[in-house]
Simulated assay, not measured.
Amino acid sequence: MKKIAILTSGGDAPGMNAAIRAITRVASKKNIEVYGIMDGYSGLVKGHIKRLENSDVSEVLSRGGTILGSSRLPEFIEDEVQQKAVKELQSREIEGLVVIGGDGSYRGALELSHKGICCVGIPGTIDNDINGTDETIGFHTALYNIVDAVNKLRDTSSSHHRCFVIEVMGNNRDSLALYSGIACGSEFIITKNTGYDEDYIVKMMNYYEKEQGKKHAIIIASEKMIDVEKLAERISLETHFSGRSIVLGHIQRGGSPVPQDRILASQMGQYAVELLMDHQSGYCVCKKDNHIVARKIDEALNDVNKIQGKMYQLFDELV
């Protein structure tokens, strides 16, 4: 294999640049030319492709986001659009493609692999919502950003007898809410797996204040689950806590990637190059039981995450 390309697709995730850097440097040492595709599948279809040298990835390890840019292209499910992408790669004699993104990005890579392009996926999403891998690039940085924000909110919460209802990202998945709830010592987490009983929460908030003497409380909810403002208002009306709602938003996605994401991205980038050199198309790089492994994309996407159940049990025992 003489030429490979990289694209980042979907929502950006801290650590994507570390993966781009690793792929570029590892491939270059193996005398493989590396090309960067700008703005995801949209840039691929439009032919926005440029050669990447080692100098292009210098000093990107600590940068958040993605130097290649990202976008969403719903039309990529159409065969005609996929054929345009194949034509752009073949016209440049690019044989291999590394796709860094979420499950939608994986599905695009799988379609291209069926059309003769050797494709490998790398999981890049803060939501940690890709089946088949225990961790995704960007999750740990987003988790750190949430914990840092909640720690600061807890300081003011203690001073004013407040209950903060905090919405975190997760795209209707539970990893960020669950892990941050444990890390922050929250009284409640609200996810699709916990369900939502507003009456019970209000009842328990009164119990915490009267029976346990709590002077502050934290409730963390995964996005798209509840109206955090409405719950905070009810807590103010029916308990002795002053309810406040916070939507952390895109601050969770930004900032310099933490070391764990940089290392994971570097490991996955290196392994992706090895897979392409072996012409292992239609595979994705995963972290399973603390090992970097390859799995077929379709099998990985249909896998079941068994870690979450243990984490829910841990949260229940800690509250």
Rank of each mutant, 00 (worst) to 15 (best):
G101E: 13
A217F: 03
S245D: 12
E317S: 12
G116W: 11
K152A: 09
L237V: 04
A217L: 12
N206E: 13
A149D: 02
Q280F: 00
M268H: 04
C163E: 01
I100M: 11
N54C: 06
G43D: 01
V168W: 01
K296C: 01
S266N: 00
K50G: 02
V202L: 15
Y207K: 15
A177W: 02
N151T: 12
I6W: 03
S71A: 15
G104D: 15
Q212S: 08
E233A: 13
K87E: 15
E187A: 10
H240P: 00
Y41W: 14
L318C: 01
Q270F: 10
I219C: 03
K46H: 08
S71F: 03
V26C: 04
T125F: 10
E93I: 01
V247F: 08
I23P: 03
H216S: 15
M205E: 10
M16F: 08
Y41A: 03
D174Y: 04
R234G: 02
G64P: 05
A22E: 11
E233L: 06
T239R: 07
Y35R: 10
H114S: 11
C119N: 09
R173T: 15
M225W: 02
L97T: 10
D127L: 08
A294E: 06
N128W: 05
Y179L: 11
I190Y: 04
I130Y: 07
I246P: 00
E111P: 00
E198F: 13
V147L: 07
R234N: 11
V319T: 14
T136C: 15
K214E: 15
G64I: 09
D199I: 09
Y271M: 10
G213N: 08
S70K: 09
S186N: 01
Q313C: 05
M38Y: 13
S42Y: 14
T239G: 05
G249I: 04
K296T: 06
Q83T: 11
K203N: 15
G101R: 12
M1Q: 02
G108Q: 07
L153P: 10
I307Y: 05
N171I: 06
I292L: 06
I32Q: 03
K2C: 00
S62L: 12
H250Y: 15
L52Q: 06
I94H: 12
L44E: 02
R72N: 12
S62K: 12
E233T: 04
I263T: 04
P123G: 11
Y144A: 01
K192L: 13
V165I: 13
M277L: 15
M268V: 04
Y208N: 09
R63I: 12
D197W: 09
I126C: 04
I226V: 09
F315L: 07
C119Q: 09
G132S: 06
K230P: 02
V120C: 02
I219D: 05
A85W: 02
G269S: 02
I220P: 08
H161E: 15
I6H: 05
Q267M: 04
V34F: 06
L314K: 09
T125A: 08
R63D: 08
R244Y: 10
S70D: 00
